[in-house]
Design a protein around this nucleic acid. Structure first.
Lengths: 243, 243
DNA sequence: ATGCACAAATTGGTTGGACCATTGAACCAC
DNA sequence: GTGGTTCAATGGTCCAACCAATTTGTGCAT
């Protein structure tokens, strides 16, 4: 009732440019990594100023769809289609302990759901991929004595990817930066993340056994251990960080 | 081991502009709705071209942080801070059934977790606010015979807000557009959302009773009914949309 | 004074052209 | 081959002007 009669768009140059460009990408079947026409050519072909083309491409760049390399060209970074839906999300203040805990709660929600969905939907190939990442992680864990954050992350990524819903991976990928920043300075907790180790295997077992609720439960347990480590780290910090 | 030696950043003009602008907003304590300096003034003050200012603002506009009105000015649309984290989410084929299901799965994950957290953390004031929204919704439901999408939404928002974690509300707000768009054209399902109605009350009861797991369970049930309606709608669509 | 029509100033949107900085390939000397 | 050099292509920045929408001010009629 409220907003039928959308505001009429008298001008929308750069949007039109993006629409045309999306159509071009579709027609040419361009995929990630491929180079698209130069700004000058686009400007000439579309009969708009190069500045307008640049504004349009800036939008796509901000959305992570495209990467510009000076002197080289503009390259696709993700699959684009004319009917994409964008949900830009900006999170305020995630540098401190509270922010980290907040992201961890999001992760708990998504991790549990993704594991459950994964148990329902994962195909044989995805299952094999997850197990491969798990093996890699366990090997790294024993070889480097617990320093397996990279492999750990790849395991979780594989689970998210196999959930069949790209949003899981996207949201969590954006949070990766935050976790990674933290994992390099684990607040003096020497064996940070050790407690979570066994649950990776149990999660995988539930997924492989097609047990959604079991996978959900194990995922919740895993996050709980990480939360615990985090709280211990915060306590350490409070004791040692007197200045 | 892998990414020590990060690529050096020789120039980053527009990023610098945004950083400066974020600092300005912070210093002037500007909030949503307020107007920020004109492009020409920014260009002059920051000693950069107006073009560069425009590219920077285009980025913020794309992220939904800012709104430009020709002839009027540029206005803040959301709170900005220098340490924001941006995560643009893009969903291919956003208009169709699959896209809506994808966002619904995210919503299921967040809704369940938020309800559980809410049962643990909500204070008296938050609890009262949730109940108020619930009453409003129930009233609207009976008065307008099921058309209570706005009030429905506000109820869920109140729950998210009372979870004590702002990220829940932010993420779900980014997805609001998709839900809203759909609620106006419920695929011919006449009583869309009716089935979910009673669960709002049961969720609230669990929260008020400080029963996290109960709240989680009820939230999952609610989303399940919406998913069900959605599938029925998709079935209707398949039957009627032959062309 | 009040209200309305019109002009002027303000502001974002677009254009065209110029130049700079980086990249990558072709080429050359050793 | 290896390591420079040159050079054309390409994105990044700048400038100056003009267009289009909005806001503000001005002055006239009532």
């Amino acid at each position: 009732m409220t907003d039928l009669l959308p505001p009429i768009q008298t001008t929308a140059r750069d949007d039109a440019v993006l629409k045309a460009l999306a159509g071009f990408v579709r027609q040419e079947a361009l995929g990630p990594g491929e180079k698209l026409p130069t700004e000058r050519i686009l400007a000439e072909r579309l009969k708009v100023s190069r500045n307008t083309v640049r504004e349009a491409l800036t939008r796509w760049e901000g959305l992570g769809l495209v990467e510009r390399r000076q002197g080289s060209g503009t390259y696709l970074k993700a699959a684009v289609s004319p009917d994409m839906l964008h949900m830009p999300l900006t999170l305020a203040g995630g540098n401190d302990f509270a922010g980290l805990m907040a992201t961890l709660e999001i992760r708990r929600a998504l991790e549990a759901e993704a594991a459950a969905l994964c148990a329902i939907r994962a195909g044989k190939a995805e299952l094999a991929e997850i197990e491969r990442k798990l093996d890699l992680m366990e090997e790294a864990f024993q070889t480097r004595d617990g320093m397996s954050s990279e492999e750990d992350w790849e395991f979780h990524q594989a689970v998210f990817r196999a959930s069949g819903n790209p949003l899981f991976e996207q949201i969590i990928a954006a949070m990766y930066e935050m976790f990674h920043r933290f994992w390099e300075h684990p607040l003096g907790v020497r064996d940070f993340g050790h407690a979570s180790f066994p649950y990776h295997r149990t999660i995988f077992n539930c997924i492989a056994a097609r047990d959604p609720e079991g996978a959900r439960t194990e995922a919740l347990k895993l996050i709980a251990t990480v939360e615990d480590d985090l709280k211990r780290g915060a306590a350490n910090l409070k004791l040692s960080d007197r200045r």
